[in-house]
Each structure stands twice: as C-alpha cells, then as structure tokens.
Design a protein around this nucleic acid. Structure first.
Length: 676
DNA sequence: GGGAATGCGTTTTTT
DNA sequence: ACGCATTCCC
C-alpha cells in the first residue's frame, strides 16, 4: 500500500477516505474499521491541508505513540513536500509537556519541573505508604502499584476512589479513608517537589485550558487544526483536552474504531467515540468499512468474534482481496509442542519465500512467549520481542537514570532514594536521611563528604559518589562526557548488585547510543520519561540486514499488520486472561483484544491451543479449555488441525538407541552423590 | 534501630 | 520470579 510520490486524492483514496481527507472546517468523526486505511486517510488529510495553504505549524496531530506521529508525517512529506515535517505531532503527554513548560507557572509549577515515569511514581507512593504506616501488622493494604493504578484511574476516568475501590478491589473497601489520605499526600508531595507524573501532565493541561482563558486563546490560535488518532483509546480527560483545543475554531477530526478499544484498564473509553456527536452536534461522521488488509476468511472470523460482543458494534468488515485459506486452529499437546509447531512452521514458510519480517507471533501477556523464545534460540531463528517490560524500566537503566538526574538536580529525593540504596549498609531509612541532609543543604554535594559520614562503612562510597556527581553536573563536558562518567562509575557497582551484570552492562552501551541523538542532559532525561525509546514497539522499517521474526503482545501490535500471524495460548485463563473473569467490561475488552489480534493478519492466521498447561507460579498443571472466543463461534470459520507431538517416553528411548545400562557405574555414581 | 535474610502470596495489557 | 511483611542478626 505504498503511495506514490504525488498527492492524487482521486486515484489513491476511495470515496469515504476522500471525504475525510478533504473535509472542510468543523468537527469530524471518522469511524475506521480494522485495515480500512485509517492511517492512510490521516496522512492524506495532513498533506491535503498543507497543500491548501494551511501553515504546517498550525496543524496538531495527536497520536498514541510518538513513532506513529513521526511515521505519518514522514509519509505526508513523501506525498507532498517537506513542509509536512513541520506539523506538530506527538502523544497527548508529550504535547502537554511542551505546553506546560511554557505555561506551568500559571499553575504554580516552578520553571524546571521534572517528569516522574511510572516507576518513579510507584516508588514515591511506596515511600509514602511505609512512611505513613498504612500497612500495619497483620493487615493487608493495597500494594504501591495497586494504589497508583487506583489514583491514575480515578484521574483518567473522573470517577472517585470510593466507586473504583468498591468495584475493582472490594476486599479493600474498609481502607477507603486511608487510600484517600495517601492519595492526597501523594499529590501534595509531587507539588512540593515540583514533579509531575503522567496523569498530572494531562490534568494540568486541562486545568490550564479551562482556567486560563488567555493561555487557551493563545494555544487555540496557534493550532488551528487538531487531528486525533486512535480516538477509541483516549480517556475522558484526553477527550476533554481535545475538545478544549478545538473550542475556538471547532476544527477537530478524531479517528478511531470502537471495536478496537483495548486500553480500558488505563481509563480509555470508546464512549468518547460514541458521544462525540453529543459534544459536537454539527459533527460530520464518515465510515470506512472496506478492508484492504486481510482476505475474507480472516475477516469472517473477526466478524464472528465481534458478533458475540455484548455491545453490538454493527460492524462487518469486507474485503476484495483474493484468498480462501481459513484460519487454522492447531491443537498441540502442551506449550512446548506449541513452540515447536510455530518454530517449524516459521522455518517452512521462510523456505517457501515468506520473509521473517512478514510474520509475527502475538500473545496476550509478554511472558507467554517464554517457551517459544527458547525454541527459536535453539534453532537460530532471529526474533525481536515487543511489549512487556520496557527498556527504561529495567532496574539497571533506572539506576543509571537516577545517577544522571542527581547530576542534573541534586534535590531530586526519589533519585537519591533509589541510588543510595545500591550501597551495602544503606537501606530505606538511611537513604532517606542522607537525601534529606543533602536537600536541606540546598543540594550541596559537599554534604556527602562530611566528617561524621566518613566513619560509616559506606563513607568511602559516598565520597566517591560525590566526585562522580561533580563530573556529571558539568554541562561543559557535553552529554556524551557526562554519560561516560556515569556509566563508568555505575559499571563498578553492577556486579555486586546483579547476577547477570554482563547482560545489563550491554544495555548501558545501548543507552549511550540513544544519547547520541541529544545534546543536553535535561532533554535526554525528559525524553526518556515521556517518550521512551521504542524498543518495545514493532518496527515496519525494512532492513534486510536485520531480518527478524516479531514476537509481540497484542497491545503492542496495535495498528500493525503481517502476512502471517500466529496467536498463542488460545486457552481460557490465558486469552481471555484470568483477571478478566467475573468482570464483564474487562472480559469484553479481552474480546476486542482478540479481534485486534485476528485482524493483524493479511493472508494466513494460525490459532494455537495447547491441550495441557504446565504448572507455573501459582497455577497448577491442568487440562486447558479452548478459549471461549473460539468455543462459542461457528467452527465453520476455522480449519482444525490436531497435532499432538508424539515423543516416545524416556524408557523406550534408551532401548531404541541400544545402550546398555552399566550397573557398576550407576552404583559408583550413587555412592558418590547419594540418592538425592 | 536498621539492614539483610527468609518466606509467603501473587503474576495482564502501557502512554 | 517479585514485592512485601516478617524474622533474624549486627
């Protein structure tokens, strides 16, 4: 679907796409089914506006990831000209950061506020949780991640903690007062430290737009056309912001597919799409229904899955692409059989001429690929995994970032708290005390060399840390120089802290490579928090040197497509996942997630079902049930293949090979090692 | 008092 | 395998 390098809307778009791309002023809702050319339409929309003389700087394109925005603007530039690169594009959070850097003072934030990423935010909540003695003896109190999730959901959905607690965590209903108290303390502490978490970025942007008419007018007149992609995965707060951004001129185009809404756990609601015409009564609506991605049998399965949804989406995808291979349901004996099947079929397909880059394995949860990763490693199949733990969330990367933050801002309590505990003999209490000492001294690093600390077991460590921070805090060294000091020092701490120090050390090198794109420490750090490097997102860039199979969570595969797709573990409890049972909304989201997985495939779709699940942390080994999403539909839409791998039991194996058991050797071994 | 070791219950998805 | 509470030890 590569468009040629000229803007020809008649030739390249169908009527509905064209109606959206060339729409005039006003609010516009584009409901775009999977594979219906949604991105293409937005790209042409941008190019069209610029070609009509709209200043590129006055177009704001809000997307789900930074990469999505960059990719669209790159394509628009290829269609029209380089002016399209000057369009303002990015995530809501990145846009909020940009605006608040300029207007934050109106809301009482100091000039250089910093961003707490998810991990930092959780650490702060954890700190307040233990500080306030909320977890008393023998009493269960929500963990820091649970608390943060509650606070976040409350902010993003506009619902109060009482309702969320009752709904999601009834077992903690008695703790409501404490949870609320902790929430208030968390908000106060962030404000006092001049930091914002992800949610604060959105809240503060909304507050700015609501409460400061002057700022709102300036912002609205700067961005005359607002385009929002993936609107089904925006939350109430984001929808409010989008509406406010368009409040002066009304030029708001939102694009989405309510059937692909999969971020409800983060507060997203497809009600934003449904209700759009209520907020903008004059909004025009365009439906994109023809699918250009998949062959009809794959869409038939997608339609069948969706037909069972509790809310009807009234959607039926159709395609004119030739092909009649039905999706294949493959039953294997267990997860290892599943891994073997996928590895073998991937290799066969490659033999048949399908490049690895045209194949993907999708899973519900990142760890579901564990067995497959081993199998692929054994067979030397290059792959890359996306989703799950992010690079910047790995403990060692966070450690290094804490060190860098201290070089930039020696009053960053969270960074002190984290880094100091790396030393032997320093735990939470000591770390907090030391951090307080430095911060009370206005961030004077000389505190670390005070005589009374010298005598402590970690006195030398602190003295050394001071020297390193002195170097990191020198902007004249340049980012590369500062980073080099940090990495060289941190490397010496790695081995005593982590068993797999060598692997982690390589990541530090990766971080140095990423840093080459920046010229100052503060820009580097804020970008790491707000737009983390996208190692976790599949890339569609074509690099023949680096051909690899993609392993991805379904969430991270959003918006992408492959010729051949494997979906693993179609088993109740895995997909749909256990936590969704008993929660109708979460369960329906799992269904939409499966719909997203199915509609990633262009030509061939393999659905894998292990008959037995091995026992894995908490779960006992047991016979697996076929995923309800498949069990409940008409199996006419599928081809079924039973494939039990038939490895002989271990006993027969020896005999077949004709090996004699040497009793004397066995006795010697037993005498030496005992029976254990 | 506070840090380190032990043990128990839990395990989704991520801007 | 990981976070968190409890217990163990200086």
């Amino acid at each position: 679907m590569a468009e040629s390098a000229t803007l020809d809307l008649e030739r390249d778009l169908n009527a509905a796409q064209r109606a959206a791309a060339c729409a005039g002023a006003g609010a516009h809702l584009v409901v775009a089914g999977a594979g219906s050319g949604k991105t293409r339409t937005l790209v042409y929309r941008v190019a069209y506006l610029v070609s009509q003389g709209v200043a590129p700087e006055s177009i704001l394109l809000l997307t789900f990831t930074r990469r999505a925005a960059q990719e669209m603007l790159r394509r628009a530039a290829a269609l029209l000209d380089e002016r399209c690169r000057r369009v303002a594009g990015g995530t809501f959070h990145a846009f909020a950061y940009l605006v608040l850097r300029r207007y934050g003072e109106l809301l009482g934030y100091g000039d250089g506020f910093t961003i707490l990423d998810r991990g930092d935010a959780a650490d702060l909540v954890g700190l307040l949780r233990s500080e306030g003695g909320f977890a008393r003896r023998g009493r269960r109190f929500p963990r820091k991640d649970t608390l943060l999730e509650l606070f976040s959901k409350s902010v993003n959905t506009g619902r109060d903690l009482a309702a969320l607690l009752a709904e999601d965590y009834p077992q903690f209903a008695d703790d409501l007062a404490d949870v609320e108290r902790l929430g208030r303390r968390y908000a106060e502490r962030k404000k006092a430290q001049n930091v914002m978490d992800y949610d604060d970025l959105l809240v503060n942007l909304r507050d700015l737009l609501v409460e400061h008419a002057g700022a709102r007018r300036q912002i609205c007149s700067r961005y005359r056309h607002v385009l929002v992609d993936e609107y089904q995965d925006t939350n109430r707060l984001q929808a409010h912001i989008a509406a406010l951004l368009a409040s002066a001129h009304g030029n708001l185009m939102v694009v989405g597919d309510e059937a692909q809404s999969i971020y409800g756990f983060r507060g997203a609601s497809f009600a934003n799409i449904i209700d759009f015409p209520k907020v903008f009564p004059d909004a025009r609506t365009t439906l994109l229904e023809q699918n250009y991605r998949s062959i009809q049998p794959i869409l038939d399965l997608g339609n069948a899955v969706l037909a069972r949804a509790r809310q009807s989406f009234g959607k039926r995808l159709y395609s004119e692409l030739p092909g009649d291979d039905k999706p294949l349901l493959v039953r294997t004996d267990d997860e290892h059989g599943q891994a073997r099947f996928v590895a073998e079929r991937v290799l066969e397909l490659r033999e048949e001429g399908v490049p690895l880059a045209e194949m993907a394995v999708l899973v519900r949860a990142a760890w579901h690929t564990n067995a497959l990763e081993i199998e692929l490693g054994r067979r030397n199949v290059p792959f890359r995994k996306y989703g799950g733990l992010r690079f910047v969330e790995a403990a060692h990367v966070k450690d290094l970032c804490a060190l860098l933050k201290l070089g930039q801002n020696p009053t960053d309590a969270a960074a002190w708290h984290r880094f100091l505990q790396l030393y032997d003999g320093i735990g939470p209490t000591t770390a907090q005390r030391l951090a307080a000492e430095v911060i009370d001294a206005g961030g004077d690093l000389a505190v670390l060399a005070r005589p009374h600390l010298r005598r402590r077991p970690y006195g030398r460590d602190l003295a050394r840390l001071k020297e390193v921070l002195d170097a990191i805090s020198r902007p004249d060294l340049g980012l590369a120089g500062q980073l080099e000091h940090a990495v060289r020092y941190y490397q010496t701490l790695l081995p005593q802290r982590y068993d797999d120090a060598a692997r982690r050390q390589r990541d530090l090198g990766t971080l140095e490579v990423i840093a080459e794109r920046y010229d100052a420490l503060d820009a580097f750090l804020s970008d790491l928090a707000i737009d983390p490097p996208d190692f976790t997102r599949p890339s569609r860039e074509h690099d023949p040197e680096d051909e690899h199979l993609t392993l991805s969570t379904v969430h991270s595969a959003k918006g992408l497509e492959w010729r051949v797709v494997f979906v693993l573990n179609l088993v109740n409890g895995y997909f749909p996942s256990f936590p969704s049972f008993g929660d109708a909304e979460a369960y329906e989201e799992e269904r939409r997630l499966f719909y997203v997985a199915v509609t990633r495939a262009q030509r061939r779709l393999y659905l894998l079902k292990p008959e037995v699940l091995s026992g894995r942390g908490g779960y006992r080994e047991r016979v697996a049930e076929l995923s309800a999403f498949l069990a409940e539909i008409d199996l006419e839409t599928l081809t079924e293949e039973r494939l039990y791998s038939d490895q002989p039991p271990a006993g027969e194996w020896l005999e077949e090979e004709g090996v004699d058991v040497d009793d004397a050797t066995l006795r010697r071994i037993q005498a030496y090692f005992g029976d254990g």
